[in-house]
Simulated assay, not measured.
Amino acid sequence: MLLKKEFVFDAAHNLIHYKGKCEKLHGHTYRMVVIIEGIPDHEGMVIDFCEVSSLVKERVISRLDHAYINDIIPQPSAENIAVWVWKEIEGFLRRPNCHLEAVEIWETATSGVVVRKEDINA
Rank of each mutant, 00 (worst) to 15 (best):
W84I: 14
R116F: 02
I72K: 10
I16G: 10
V114E: 09
V60Q: 14
G112D: 04
I35Y: 10
K4Q: 15
L64W: 14
S53R: 09
D41H: 12
W84D: 01
D65E: 00
E79K: 04
I81P: 10
V83I: 15
T110I: 05
K21I: 12
I69N: 12
D119Q: 12
V60G: 06
L2Q: 09
R59T: 02
P74G: 05
A67P: 11
E37G: 04
C50G: 13
A12T: 09
W106Q: 04
K24I: 00
V103G: 13
E107H: 09
G38M: 11
T29V: 09
D65W: 07
L25C: 12
N70G: 01
V52H: 08
A122F: 11
I35E: 15
L64V: 13
S54N: 14
L55C: 08
D119T: 01
A82E: 10
I89Q: 07
K57G: 05
C22V: 01
H66Y: 07
L100R: 04
E90K: 10
S54W: 11
I36V: 15
A109E: 12
V33M: 10
Y18K: 05
R116G: 05
E43C: 11
E118A: 08
A109R: 02
E79V: 03
T110V: 08
A12S: 05
G38C: 05
Y18T: 13
S62D: 13
H26I: 15
H28D: 01
D71C: 09
K87F: 08
P96N: 04
L64T: 14
G44R: 08
E101V: 05
M1V: 15
I47Y: 08
K5R: 13
K4I: 04
G20K: 08
E43G: 08
V85L: 05
A78Q: 10
V46F: 15
E58S: 13
K87M: 14
S77G: 03
H28G: 01
R95T: 07
V56L: 00
Y68P: 00
T108L: 02
A11M: 14
E107F: 02
N80C: 13
M1I: 14
D71Q: 08
I105V: 12
V115A: 08
T29P: 05
C22W: 00
P74R: 15
K5P: 01
A102C: 12
N80E: 02
A109V: 07
D48W: 04
L2P: 03
S54K: 14
N121M: 12
C22A: 09
E43Y: 13
K117E: 10
I72C: 14
